[in-house]
Simulated assay, not measured.
Amino acid sequence: MSTRSVFTLAATLLASILVSPAAAQLSSDCNPLNATCSPDPALGTSHTFYFNATPPTGTFNTTAGTVDYSVDEGAAFTISKKGESPTLISNFYFFFGKTEVLLKAAPGQGIISSIVWSSDVLDEVDWEFMGGNTTHASTNYFGKGEPDFKNAGYHPVNGSVQDDYHNYTSVWTKDKLEWYIDTVHIRTLLATDANNTLYYPQTPMKLSLGIWAGGDPDQPKGTIEWAGGVTDYAEPYTMYVKSAYVQDYSTGKEYSYDDHSGSWESIKIATGNSTAYENLNKVPEKTLSEKWNDLPSSTKSGIYAAAGGVGAIAFGLLAFYYIKQRRSGKQEAALAPMPRRD
């Protein structure tokens, strides 16, 4: 690693101790730590989302910008002006599980590409990529929204995080969290090491994929320093995601909190198929060609015969009309006055 890279990484590590911008970005419409909230819709299955096209109906929402899709690059999250932070947020939650995201981070000073798990009680698990650092990925976690700024880890990545797609995997159980880069294990967090499980992420999570400007001039000074400096909006910055595999280790329709503890033991699982499961396994409507191919031969023969009969009738009517018109024309010619001869 070059001397400049060493100093850059050291500065980043120092800034991470002083500020936690990721935690500042999250909020909860209803926090079960102090309120009774509606159940969270479960994933209740496993699925690989390929972002060469719009995600299946009802699985993700797009916020704070536009996400474009292409066969070659996958989903493109672009910041082209101040105020944009395009993000895909899942409509489903998973309760312990695994995600594998194939991602190429965005360049740009102050630009942050991210993979975030977040819960209603503000448990959180992160991958973050700083636009000014092409060689490292950051991992982080928070429990119940507590701003503990010493949880971040920085990990070297073989090849550029901005020029190549890499597989960023997180595996989560009630006992431990593990992070992997391109199938190589890089970090483990034991539940007992997170303030004796109190701040260990342990409640149903939704998945967010997005990009934001930590270097926006309106951000707090500490966030701008952590992100690598002030963002210049003179050019666009794009993060790409080809696919995301999500596995819910629980099965059921929805998750609810039985008390205000924020403990995994308080989570109740409603039985049944989730909305996400139904959407992902919905049989697509058949095309006209497929419907035709499914018809019995006898039905097809009947349709052919009926079509032939209709064609014959139409031809007969056309011939009758033609003959009638000819006769009418002859009658008109016969009744017409003869021209005078001088």
Rank of each mutant, 00 (worst) to 15 (best):
V161Y: 01
G302R: 13
T287L: 06
D193H: 11
L103S: 03
F142W: 07
N293M: 13
T173C: 05
G302H: 15
V125G: 00
Y277G: 05
H260N: 08
R326Y: 06
D232Q: 07
V19K: 12
V125K: 04
G108M: 05
T169G: 06
A76P: 09
P21D: 10
Q325K: 15
P39M: 07
K324N: 12
D216H: 02
G58T: 04
N52W: 01
R341A: 07
A194E: 03
N52K: 05
G311C: 11
D68C: 06
Y249M: 12
G228L: 01
G229C: 01
K324A: 12
N158R: 15
A22F: 12
V230R: 11
V19G: 11
W226Q: 10
V101W: 06
Q202V: 00
L14E: 14
A314E: 13
P55L: 03
T99I: 10
A276L: 03
T169M: 10
A35V: 12
G83F: 04
S266T: 14
L189Y: 14
Y141I: 04
D120R: 15
F60G: 00
G153N: 10
H136Q: 09
L209R: 09
S38P: 14
F7E: 11
L295S: 04
A137D: 00
F77A: 05
F142N: 12
G110F: 08
K98V: 12
Y322P: 07
F94H: 02
I211W: 05
G97L: 04
C30F: 01
G262F: 04
D29R: 15
H136E: 07
T287E: 06
Q331Y: 10
Y249L: 13
W212H: 08
L122T: 02
N196M: 04
G316M: 08
V310Q: 07
Y154M: 07
A227G: 02
A333E: 14
S27R: 08
V6G: 09
T197H: 08
A75V: 07
N31T: 06
S90G: 09
T275P: 01
T173D: 05
P156E: 10
A76T: 01
T59P: 03
S266C: 01
Y165M: 07
Y240L: 06
F94G: 04
L177P: 02
A11W: 10
L122N: 03
A306M: 07
S20V: 11
W292R: 05
V230Q: 06
G83S: 07
Y245K: 09
T8C: 13
